[in-house]
Design a binder for these strands. Structure first.
Lengths: 340, 340
DNA sequence: CACAAAAATGAAAACATTTGCAAAACTATT
DNA sequence: AATAGTTTTGCAAATGTTTTCATTTTTGTG
């Protein structure tokens, strides 16, 4: 406490205590093989004694990497993203990176601001969710030429490198599953698609598949529900209480599907006998609900992992630029859907 | 691309283009009132043209704040923490901070390493989950004197500032609820308490409350389950299939409780008639499951929010040191428990 | 229109580190 | 024991910004 300065110990302090030059201290961190073992020991002891921790900021100024990757997500508090973020972060950690995270609540203007914030911190790489972003956002990313990958949505003609699934296909697959079970009276519960290309694509995929099969969804069977079990339950109760109701409901994601499931329970509708329910996502727990939820499996963990891998490798200069990577979807036919 | 240097534009570049000195550029960011509006315009244009983004690292070197707060969590992919992290991050953002996050998977040695990593980045503040940490971790935090708050667990004699709930009390409240409904044959499903003081305290609180009421839990009615609906379901099926089974099960958290609920459904046990199920946490969705889950409400959002507030204020020099803040628990008696 | 006061700007030092280059200290060889 | 080579270390410049202090420009007043 009576140290000559109140502040954190310096590389200079370490050098002084270890009785070597600061270059040697620096080297013992960055090129340990160039410094004599005995000297290294001395330095180590000094570091211990002082509780010295290197200052990344100073390193960054030297053109060194910051060792951080920025991730911009709509929200963290969401089963899908949480799983993704976890695997992304784990893989980054394995590569020695730390994750800076910013969430914008589905507001693309805020997304832009958060992106700038991350860039001020000189992140070495960047990941964003989906392919729908504001023009300034795209320009910014373009301009900075920092390795960037768009996660979650796949589109072969994307301007950004992307790793994810084809959400339109997810919608189609889900629709086809219901069609194949003989359903023709179908309700839709989806999130608001604005600023959310995942939801938009799924909805479009589903609707077009139904149309192809000659099925039109009446307006009053199309519901919008936020990402929330509660709201989805509330909204779908209204739908299901109508005298004339669908035989199946296709949901924009598993959370909504759970809401619909509980709504059915609440109204004493037997699932799947009275009503088939189809989700999209296959979140943790979807296989465990009773009845287990039929859904489209999106490999969130794998997406996060591969995205982290791609960014790390790009930074390390391995790949020039993989532009698009599509992961496979799988129909998980479980017990919330049945033949009509 | 043909710029004199490949690298990112500098404050120097901006100054050159705007035909002012770098001091003026710097000032126009940090003390705009000191620079003439016309000059500010010029600088702004130059910034636009170059796509200049300030380098936080260089600012940090000047003793400026990094504008980052480090958060170390056991895991992100977990309903409780996701909600907490979200509100924490939102509030931090309001205060202009960015969140650096690291997860250690309930491994206290890894926690220490992640903490060091964050400190290399010179975070302005630090948050950790719970009060159980390795000695080196405590020393490190002590030594660095960076505003630090332990989130989630409250303990009045904590060495760290903490904001959270009394998890032992949560356990007691949950137990008392079941006792008050007349249950005496009770099963326990809790996570592994090692390196997880939240679980440990809850378990202890519950067990001691039962003991006070003269209720002993037989060894084969005490289950350990990880934080996973699936595993909890699987484990509790084994418990519930036994001929002699409890009339109520107290779960270490709502995820486990959901697993038990599904297990009951699976075995066609009526909840709450055949079996009462009590959770702890009151996660999103717990009120929506059918039957809705009786549980102890832990105000995760509020905890995250207050923690962020506390850290921000401490950094800004408002409070010297609030040492401990206990948030209130609430018994949410819903439909998964009933009088025996 | 001159002068003082106020406002705006610029020069240079400081921050903590890395690294190219040079010097010093060893080792091995004759 | 001197020389050449090798290993180890130190010096000093460079990185991008902020800030103090000094200087220049502008404004207001008599």
């Amino acid at each position: 406490m009576t140290d000559k300065k109140q502040n954190k110990p310096d590389i200079v302090d370490v050098a002084r205590i270890a009785r070597v030059s600061i270059s040697t201290v620096s080297r013992s961190y960055n090129h340990p093989e160039l410094v004599k073992p005995a000297t290294r020991k001395k330095i180590e002891r000094a570091v211990q004694k002082l509780g010295y921790i290197r200052n990344r900021a100073a390193q960054v100024m030297h053109g060194r990497r910051s060792g951080t990757i920025g991730l911009v997500v709509p929200t963290i508090d969401n089963a899908i993203f949480a799983e993704l973020i976890q695997s992304f972060s784990d893989k980054l950690d394995q590569h020695g990176f730390t994750m800076l995270i910013a969430s914008h609540g589905f507001d693309l203007d805020r997304e832009y601001k958060m992106l700038r914030k991350l860039l001020e911190h000189r992140v070495d790489g960047l990941a964003v969710i989906g392919l729908e972003h504001s023009d300034p956002t795209y320009q910014l990313i373009e301009q900075q030429n920092i390795p960037t990958v768009a996660i979650w949505n796949y589109n072969k003609s994307s301007a950004l490198s992307c790793i994810g699934v084809d959400n339109a296909e997810a919608g189609r697959l889900a629709a086809r599953h219901l069609i194949s079970l003989g359903h023709r009276k179908i309700g839709l519960v989806f999130p608001d698609p604005s600023g959310n290309d995942r939801a938009y694509d799924r909805l479009n995929g589903a609707v077009s598949e139904f149309r192809t099969a000659g099925i039109e969804i009446p307006e009053n069977w199309r519901l919008e529900a936020p990402y929330s079990v509660r709201e989805a339950k509330r909204a779908s109760i209204l739908l299901l209480e109508q005298g004339h109701r669908p035989t199946a409901i296709l949901c924009g994601n598993d959370i909504i599907a759970q809401g619909v499931l509980y709504a059915s329970n609440h109204l004493s509708l037997k699932v799947p006998d009275d009503l088939s329910i189809m989700g999209i996502g296959d979140f943790k727990g979807s296989a465990e609900v009773e009845p287990s939820l039929s859904t489209i499996r999106i490999p969130a963990k794998r997406i996060g992992l591969m995205a982290a891998e791609l960014i790390s490798d790009t930074i390390a200069g391995q790949h020039a630029d993989i532009t698009a990577m599509k992961l496979e979807l799988r129909v998980m036919a479980r017990h919330s859907t049945s033949r009509l």
